[in-house]
């Protein structure tokens, strides 16, 4: 346990893999599949399609699936040393990509949307709780976001790689 100067405690080595998206919009549900791949790699049963996993936190590597990032997650993520967000993205090469996120304010205010960018969440977490976890985003381009269940074939082939990458990052190991 690491105690920060403001008294906030962070469990050393703990990580949260948080899938984001909407299972009812095809490839937008990628985060759920990736999180369940992580759970399989950890020897844990999968989340069912109505379980966000928020009642099962407390492991060294926790997993959850939510529709979007929002400010009320700030105190949750502040309890972790590392945060891995996994989500579909729009466009780009059909492969698993990752990047690190720093706590920053947006350079533009949110216009009409209700979600929060990861960098913004981290900034809120750091400002209110004195700590923001080291954060990575793992993404795969989605091909279809229309209403419907299941991933496109192309995206489904990347679930395993994404899950393994998420777990690697959650354990603090950066891919070569």
């Amino acid at each position: 346990m690491v105690r920060w100067s403001n008294g906030w405690c962070v469990a050393e080595g703990r990580a949260l893999v948080l899938g984001l998206g909407n299972l009812s919009r095809q490839d937008d549900g990628f985060g759920w599949y990736a999180v369940n791949r992580v759970r399989a790699l950890l020897g844990q049963p999968p989340l069912d399609d109505t379980d966000d996993g928020m009642d099962r936190l407390g492991q060294v590597v926790d997993t959850a699936f939510l529709p979007q990032v929002s400010s009320d997650l700030a105190d949750l993520v502040a309890q972790y040393e590392r945060l891995v967000l996994v989500d579909a993205r729009i466009g780009g090469e059909m492969q698993v990509s990752w990047f690190a996120v720093e706590p920053l304010a947006q350079d533009q205010p949110r216009l009409l949307t209700h979600d929060m960018l990861p960098a913004e969440l981290l900034a809120v977490s750091r400002a209110l709780y004195g700590h923001a976890p080291r954060t990575y985003v793992v993404t795969v381009p989605g091909l279809s976001f229309d209403f419907g269940m299941g991933l496109s074939n192309e995206m489904a082939t990347l679930v395993d790689a994404a899950g393994r990458l998420c777990l690697l990052l959650a354990r603090g190991k950066l891919p070569a």
Binding site: L20, G21, N22, S24, R25, D28, P67, Q68, L85, D87, A88, R89, I90, Q106, Q108, L111, L112, T113, H114, D115, L117, P118, V137, T139, G142, F145, F147
Partner: peptide
């Protein structure tokens, strides 16, 4: 213009989330 729309709190984007922002 944004503030006028925003005041109604429209739900334009909630069905789907994906990494990224909504530029105008």
């Amino acid at each position: 213009v944004e503030a006028a729309i925003r005041a109604h709190d429209p739900c334009l984007s909630c069905s789907t989330h994906a990494v990224g922002q909504m530029p105008l």
